[in-house]
């Protein structure tokens, strides 16, 4: 019981410390974003010559494309990979709406692409940022590789259909890229809102040349694998948001505390069976310690999330009240 207590206390202290550090890093990144937003050169064409190609797999409606074409960054394109065998009407509607015409798909030797993808670009200058690739959907990784082949720019942001970039994401990514230095600029990963600390869901901006050197995206979690194999860094700020519903059981902090709380719960059960009331009291105390740490961590995490979301005044107070009511239920 003595060693169990030491182990659990150490784990709790480390978790709390890392939540505090993550929270401070996120707040610092946010403050930097506010400072940059007040500079008028930020995001302008004078700021950077870096172009970004956003590759989206599995788009189902025109509305999703509209949202992705709504960035005010000057040098980017959106490559949408669709499968006309699943929804022939979608491609037809896109061709009509954006005046798309078919052009040659480049059969270059950089990445191997299966099938015969068809490439469409708009005839109209105002839709020059949109590129549509029609191919038989096999996997997300293949779709992204297809996007990499036709990308005009040297930076690639692969996205799923349920993820959207935040309005300020592209200039911020490019800004961080300039500050990264040449040895750490192959990948810049960022968080996805609504974010939880220690969340492994990420979006990332990759160097096209590095992706090609690695042989393209592969596997079931192609982005995670690519982030691991390239040199870069993680930004402590969400630059994208997800519309996919997330159950609270997916919260990594919750899982962590449930894991830590399991040992004293078992100890409590054992002590109760042995009718050692002193031991049971101490195990109970440990469980309360786990819950107290969970409450403190979630309150720090939530406060940071509210600041990141820009909630002010009454909204933030309401959210904090909700936190106090729900904390015991969640953890």
């Amino acid at each position: 019981m003595y060693w169990l207590s030491i182990l659990i206390l150490t784990l709790l202290a480390l978790t709390l410390l890392s939540v505090v550090v993550a929270s401070l890093r996120t707040l610092a990144a946010l403050r930097k974003g506010r400072m940059l937003a007040s500079c008028h050169g930020y995001g302008s064409e004078a700021m950077s010559q870096t172009g970004v190609s956003v590759v989206v797999s599995g788009v189902r409606s025109e509305r999703e494309i509209e949202q992705r074409l709504s960035s005010e960054y000057w040098r980017y394109e959106v490559i949408v990979v669709v499968d006309s065998t699943l929804d022939a009407q979608l491609l037809h509607r896109l061709c009509h709406k954006y005046s798309l015409i078919r052009v040659n798909f480049p059969t270059v030797d950089e990445l191997s692409i299966d099938g015969a993808p068809r490439l469409y670009r708009s005839r109209q200058r105002r839709y020059r940022r949109l590129v549509v690739v029609d191919r038989l959907h096999r996997s997300r990784a293949d779709d992204w590789n297809c996007g990499v082949v036709v990308a005009s720019f040297d930076r690639i942001v692969p996205l799923e259909s349920d993820r959207f970039l935040l309005p300020d994401a592209l200039p911020r990514w490019v800004m961080e890229l300039h500050e990264s230095g040449e040895c750490r600029n192959e990948v810049l990963a960022a968080q996805v809102a609504p974010t939880h600390f220690f969340d492994r869901r990420r979006v990332a901006m990759f160097a096209r040349s590095a992706v090609i050197a690695e042989g393209g995206f592969v596997g079931e979690h192609p982005r995670v694998k690519m982030i691991r194999s390239l040199r870069g860094r993680l930004l402590s700020l969400p630059l994208a948001y997800s519309t996919a519903y997330r159950h609270r059981s997916e919260n990594p902090l919750r899982r962590l505390f449930l894991g830590i709380g399991l040992a004293p719960t078992v100890a409590l059960f054992v002590e109760l069976v042995r009718r050692d009331w002193e031991g049971a009291r101490e195990a109970l105390l440990l469980i309360v310690a786990v819950y107290a740490t969970a409450l403190a961590s979630s309150s720090i995490a939530l406060r940071t999330r509210l600041v990141v979301r820009g909630e002010q005044g009454e909204e933030r107070i309401k959210s904090l009240r909700r936190l106090l009511r729900c904390s015991f239920r969640v953890y």
Binding site: C39, H40, G41, Y42, S44, A46, M47, S48, Q49, M175, H178, E179
Partner: peptide, 11 residues
């Protein structure tokens, strides 16, 4: 001067 610095000077 970084690209951002140049943009600010240009403004």
């Amino acid at each position: 001067l970084s690209p951002f610095d140049l943009a600010e000077v240009l403004m």
